[in-house]
Simulated scan of single mutants.
Amino acid sequence: MGISTVNQLIQRAKSMNEYNNSGVANDSVWIDFFNIALMSMVNDLKIEAETAITHSKTTKEQDLPTGFFSVLYVLDQDGEEVEPYYLDTFSIDSHPSLSAGYLIKNKGSKTVIEFRNLAEQTYTLAYIRYPEKLAASSQVPEVPTIGETALCYKAIGLALENNNQPGAQDFEDRYNLEVMKIQKAAWVRGG
Rank of each mutant, 00 (worst) to 15 (best):
V140K: 01
E132T: 06
Q165P: 07
S137M: 15
F115S: 02
A126K: 14
Q165L: 11
T149K: 11
N117G: 05
P131L: 10
T149A: 10
P96Y: 10
A168Y: 02
E148V: 05
L103G: 12
Y102E: 02
L98Q: 15
L125H: 01
L118H: 06
N106G: 08
A168M: 04
P131Q: 04
R116L: 11
G108Q: 05
L103E: 14
E142N: 01
Y127Q: 00
A100W: 09
I146R: 03
V140N: 08
P166W: 04
E114A: 11
A155L: 03
I113Q: 07
L151E: 08
A150N: 07
L134A: 03
G108S: 10
P96K: 10
A100V: 14
Q169I: 09
A155C: 06
T111M: 11
P96D: 09
S99G: 15
V112Q: 01
A135H: 07
E132I: 08
Q139E: 15
K105R: 13
S138D: 10
V140Q: 12
A168S: 09
P144G: 02
A155P: 06
P166T: 14
Y123S: 10
I156P: 03
A136Q: 15
E132L: 09
L151Y: 11
S97D: 05
A126S: 02
Y153P: 04
E142T: 11
L151K: 06
E142Y: 01
R116G: 07
E142F: 06
T145Y: 10
N117Q: 07
P96T: 09
K110L: 14
K107H: 08
F115N: 00
